[in-house]
Design a protein around this nucleic acid. Structure first.
Lengths: 114, 114
DNA sequence: CGGAATCCAAAGAGATACTG
DNA sequence: CAGTATCTCTTTGGATTCCG
């Protein structure tokens, strides 16, 4: 669907949507540079339930950001890694870190002024 | 309601949250380079209700991205413009455009393969 | 171990109607 | 012209329970 100057097919919206899950940036971060097992991700990201991890991983998979490899062993073993496209997101995430930090220091200054 | 900051204060989360409103990137886009009146924004972004525009503008204001100037005339006149911090978001939005476009072309290729 | 199915609460987004 | 005030619908995140 072409960019209609409107809501539909807006590239920024698409981009934001695919990394805007509550834990997605964090999951991508943990996968930068290495493959991880499901249980590893669970351990690395405390506070996130199994169900939510599953949901977010499925969505990342559907968006071609993450690849899922199942080893049909007992007990089961599933590994997740970034696709090329997923790795291409790194610079954007780094920029977002910068923005977030500027934002946080801005709010601190505001608080001081009060 | 403006984001109060997560427990971890993850900068990426903060950054995403403040531009993740459904119309926020579009509003910022329309304010890049020029000041706009409320009614102008409404006209420039069809499909968005007045109420939603108000809400998004209030949140952008609370996040120090947008500045609101009221002229106490009759009829009332209100202008919106980006703050310095708001303008600093431009490179990130441009990168997000790139990501979104790569994503869209990726999905097109998938569709062709079927 | 790595899920799926179900249910629930909260937040986002929009429609509609009224107002200084 | 530029809002507020409600109400509703939908989407998300999370808790719990069951399964190959």
């Amino acid at each position: 669907m072409p960019y209609q100057g409107g809501v539909y097919g807006c590239p920024v919206e698409e981009a934001l949507h695919m990394i805007s899950g509550k834990w997605k940036p964090r999951i991508i971060h943990e996968l930068l540079g290495q493959t991880r097992r499901f249980s590893e991700l669970q351990r690395l990201i405390p506070g996130m339930s199994r169900h939510v991890l599953t949901t977010q991983l499925r969505e990342l998979e559907a968006d071609n950001i993450v690849e899922r490899t199942v080893y049909p062993t007992v007990p089961p073993k599933v590994e997740y890694s970034l696709t090329d496209f997923g790795r291409s997101l790194e610079p954007v995430l780094e920029q977002l870190v910068g923005v977030g930090e500027r934002y946080i220091s801005l709010r601190k200054n505001e608080a001081v002024e009060k």
